[in-house]
Write a protein that binds this DNA or RNA. Structure first.
Lengths: 131, 131
DNA sequence: CGTCTTGTACTACTGTCCTAGTACAAGAGG
DNA sequence: CCTCTTGTACTAGGACAGTAGTACAAGACG
């Protein structure tokens, strides 16, 4: 069963975190067409969040065409995003986790690792964003 | 001069983005003790944001002991965070940017790259967070 | 049909982010 | 002393996130 995770310190609204996690699951292959998401009430109970907040996330996902909400049955993945090929994903994921291990071995803590990654990602986005 | 950047789509409050960018600059060595940050009014004008929003960020930074606000002169970096050694930073940054280039070469777009990185970082945080 | 589960809709309320505008305090420089 | 620049403080309001509670619609199941 797909499981959500929340980061209260990030400042990102709860419903947006949920939306992004489903989108990420689709991109990386954790979620596939036909998969059933946990119910609104289940997620709300697990994350100790108001059901309306979860419903808002599911509503956005349905509006984006990524899921199909069937009243009484649940919410099912229906959309298809450009997914990363499994082999490519495996190779890149392995290399990235190797880099993470090297960073941790060099003595960097979470904050420093995140700072380095964020800086590199921002540069990457800025470079292509200008192109 | 230190420059700020905003990502309106992230959902992260503006003042928090500013705080994190200064903190990141300190961690990675972009900012050093004695450096002068742009004035509240300069940042507000450059980012098209209300001066109070910038002031809130600077206030948080001063409260955290990272900067010293001198009325009439400006805001100066004064705190020292555990900085990543320059050699370590250079090596890790180079390797990470190499990985990014490989990911882009494999046909991944920004969103897919960010998804992969976020997934790996979350796993890393979760693993050490439980320890 | 009746019941259960599920998603959805609605209103009201609280708290936070952000904006807007104004005023004040401190230091530099003429 | 006067002026400029800078950071700070304050009030007021709008927009949005999240909570709380209730009610409704659709399908599955007995």
């Amino acid at each position: 069963m797909f499981a959500f995770r929340l980061d209260a310190r990030s400042g990102v609204p709860t419903y947006l975190q949920l939306v992004e996690q489903v989108r990420r699951g689709l991109l990386l292959g954790y979620l596939s067409d036909g998969d059933r998401l946990p119910t609104v009430r289940e997620v709300a109970a697990a994350l100790v969040v108001n059901p309306n907040t979860v419903a808002k996330a599911y509503r956005e996902l349905e509006h984006a065409g990524l899921v199909d909400a069937r009243g009484g049955q649940g919410t099912y993945v229906v959309g298809s995003i450009d997914r990363v090929p499994a082999a490519t994903y495996a190779r890149l994921s392995r290399d990235l986790r190797g880099w993470l291990a090297a960073a941790r071995a060099a003595g960097l803590d979470h904050e420093q690792v995140r700072a380095l990654v964020t800086a590199a990602l921002d540069d990457d986005t800025a470079r292509a964003g200008a192109a």
